[in-house]
């Protein structure tokens, strides 16, 4: 079968790409998508190690992560829509009024 490290490596790649998306993209929606990618990288690890240790709890955790992610997306998108109404833009850099 496939060594566990392959899955870990793939997860690392997804994770880093997700972080790069958060840091580099200015479109709030894409930033959000990158967050989903990061979550997915973590999920992949959970499932891989669940199979490795033959523990079902890992898969269940993925299930919970997904529900929470769904809730987060619901609220987050609502926020973005609301912010767009106020600022007429979804540029993350426009939301910079919290500065010292």
């Amino acid at each position: 079968m496939i060594p566990i490290d392959y899955f870990v490596g793939l997860s690392v790649l997804m994770f880093v790409v997700g972080i790069a998306g958060v840091l580099l993209r200015r479109n709030a929606l894409v930033v959000f998508m990158s967050l989903e990618l990061i979550l997915n990288a973590a999920n992949l690890l959970f499932v891989a190690f669940a199979a490795y240790y033959e523990l079902l709890a890992g898969q269940l955790f993925v299930f919970f992560v997904m529900t929470v992610a769904a809730a987060e997306v619901a609220v987050g998108l609502a926020l973005i829509v609301e912010i767009f109404r106020a600022k007429k833009s979804i540029d993350v850099d426009q939301m910079s009024s919290m500065k010292g």
């Binding site: 079968m1 566990i4 490290d5 891989a48």
Partner: peptide
């Protein structure tokens, strides 16, 4: 991954 990971560890077919 290289120095701390176990390259030998293989996921068995469940």
């Amino acid at each position: 991954l290289i120095y701390r990971g176990g390259m030998q560890a293989v996921v068995n077919a469940p």
